[in-house]
């Protein structure tokens, strides 16, 4: 298959970015999207040009490192996958493919398609955990957890922190990301004691870092590679309201 690629190139955070056009030919339909970029990069190195920088690591859809905005969609045209799981068979022969980085104020560009997503870690550091230290804890079966709750918590916990929800949102909101963690921990008895403080601190940090608010367009859910549901956001809003109105832990 042959493609025309329009790729965002930018030397560093302060440089002016631009689209560059590349032609790439004889790509197997079984080739993954990132392998196609590997082939492009090897050809660029052969021509002594600087290869396109893009984040990637596990290449099996779990680490959340890769994230490209392809033809107007985070992680490209297919459903429920990350960029590394996208294959060229999902494109038409001779198609023009536009590749951009995640675009959101809290995600500054480092180079080309690589952005800095440490803002997401900073939100977790505000309270996305149960404050236990190592050791001195009861047996794993001491507190039974109903299966449906454990399963729901698992669904929320499957977020990979890739930031596609932020990239998909016109407000660059991180509500889906934050609510997935808030929901997971508030469903479990271990996370319950801190749930009021947690939701308030995480939301405050999210606002402080420049993420936008949610206006219920559900673009995040549509693009999430792990199919995290917007009902998490509803649960978080409920937690937040409850914390502000009904508890004495108002911060």
């Amino acid at each position: 298959m042959d493609f025309t690629l329009k790729i965002w190139r930018q030397e560093n955070a302060n440089a002016k970015g631009r689209f560059e056009t590349y032609k790439i030919n004889d790509i197997s339909p079984d080739c993954s999207f990132l392998e196609m970029l590997d082939i492009l990069n090897e050809s660029l190195v052969n021509k002594l040009s600087h290869p396109v920088c893009f984040d990637n690591d596990c290449r099996e859809g779990i680490c959340g490192m890769c994230g490209l905005y392809i033809n107007g969609h985070p992680h490209g045209p297919d459903q429920a996958i990350t960029t590394c799981q996208l294959h060229m068979r999902k494109f038409k022969d001779k198609e023009t493919i536009v590749i951009e980085p995640w675009r959101a104020k809290p995600f500054p560009i480092i180079r080309d398609l690589v952005v800095d997503r440490t803002a997401l870690d900073k939100i977790i550091q505000e309270g996305g955990y149960v404050s236990v230290t190592t050791g001195g804890i009861p047996d794993g079966n001491a507190i039974p957890i109903p299966k449906y709750k454990a399963d729901q918590a698992m669904d929320s916990a499957s977020c990979i922190g890739c930031g596609a929800c932020v990239a998909a949102c016109k407000n660059a909101s991180a509500m889906l990301f934050v609510s997935a963690k808030v929901t997971q921990l508030s469903l479990l008895p271990q996370g319950k004691p801190e749930s009021s403080i947690r939701v308030q601190k995480m939301v405050a940090k999210m606002d402080e870092l420049g993420f936008g608010n949610c206006t219920n367009t559900y673009a995040c859910e549509a693009e999430c590679p792990k199919e995290i549901k917007c009902s998490n956001i509803a649960k978080m809003n409920r937690e937040f309201l409850f914390a502000k109105v009904c508890t004495e832990e108002n911060i």
Binding site: Y129, V130, V132, T134, G135, I137, P138, D139, G140, N141, P144, I145, P146, K147, A150, D151, A153, M154, A157, Q184, L185, L188, Q190, G191
Partner: peptide
């Protein structure tokens, strides 16, 4: 065995059966 206890305490959502046990 302590590892499992530690992870449960951290909120790791291990699979459970209908009795709520691991």
């Amino acid at each position: 065995n302590s590892i499992i206890d530690q992870c449960v305490a951290q909120g790791v959502p291990f699979a459970r059966d209908y009795s709520g046990m691991l």
